[in-house]
Computed example of a mutant assay.
Amino acid sequence: MSKPITLQIRPRGKPIKSLPEAVSVPADATAADLYGLLSTKSRYSVHQLRVTKGSDGSHIPNGTSTVHSTGLRNDSTIYVKDLGPQIAWRTVFVIEYLAPIFIHPLFYALAAHIYGGTGAQSQMQKTALVAIVAHFVKREFETLFIHRFSAATMPIRNIFKNSAHYWLLSGVNMAYWIYSPTSSSAKDPPNQALLFAGIALYAFGELGNLSTHLTLRNLRSQGGNERGIPQGALFNLVTCPNYFTEVLSWVGVWLISGLNWSVVVFLVASGAQMASWASKKERRYRKEFGDKYKRKRFVMLPGIW
């Protein structure tokens, strides 16, 4: 065990009253050890704390890097921020994806009461219902059995923003307009070209998305936070084929729905967010892996961006 060093503690934002002004740790202690010590002193979960260096404001991740390797020395200053009450990422995903699974069948079943008339649904509306519900059931399955999260929790306040995206945009908004008797998807007989092209695109997108998630899962051990460079046909095409195939699936739903505008609203909102994540991931790959990572020509959409 190396000689301990003393770190000066300053609050970032609202002070944590139970934290001391300084702590001592061995220089060869890990960042995880530091977080554990701060957690014990503050009586907050390690996931609720964020530590940054006073010298340059850079984040010190809770991991296996040593305190010394982060650049901290005796009498260095660290800032500790309370991120607020936390909730598990897995729980957030389950809650987000659950609502559309119930909202769409509810609007479909209650169409006569919501819109009046007989409530009879067209082939396009029936197919859209199956496709949308199947998409979110798949999401729930992946959340419970496939995804491995690099971060254990997120601030609980974010669940409201995240849930609104799915509950309102892909839930109430899409369900209300797709199952309406005046909807473009209510046309019967359906436009066969749109319907079958949509089914084919949707199926390719869903299967490709599942395959991508399985590849990403195998890069990380259970409970670990290590990263690797994903390989495969789709990963050779774009940086983030999980986002690319997600877009393909929803374009398929749009075709199945008879080009219903509510699907476009959700697709644009989701696509913009995924584009931002894809750009960050490309930059992170280049930073973490350097020459080992072959930069992709396209980040998310082949031939476009």
Rank of each mutant, 00 (worst) to 15 (best):
A111I: 01
M174P: 03
E288T: 11
P61T: 12
T153N: 15
V130N: 03
S55W: 08
I9S: 11
L194S: 03
D56W: 00
G208A: 06
W277L: 05
K280V: 03
Q222A: 08
P85W: 14
K294S: 03
Y179N: 06
G208M: 05
F244Q: 11
V299T: 14
V299I: 12
L214W: 02
V263R: 00
V299W: 02
F266K: 10
P15W: 04
S180C: 07
W305I: 11
A197E: 01
S2I: 07
S18G: 02
V299Y: 05
S211V: 09
Y166Q: 09
L207I: 14
N209I: 03
I178N: 05
R12V: 04
L301M: 12
T239K: 13
M274E: 04
T70I: 10
V299M: 09
L7Y: 00
G198Y: 00
S58V: 05
L210W: 01
I256A: 05
I87Y: 04
P100F: 01
K287F: 04
R217C: 09
Y97H: 14
A152W: 07
A151K: 11
V268P: 02
K3G: 08
S211Y: 10
T52F: 01
F298D: 01
V80I: 06
L98G: 13
S211F: 03
M124A: 14
P20F: 01
T6S: 11
S163M: 08
D82N: 14
K161I: 07
Y243S: 06
G57A: 03
R286T: 12
P15F: 05
L194R: 14
S249D: 06
W254I: 00
L98A: 13
M154L: 12
S249G: 03
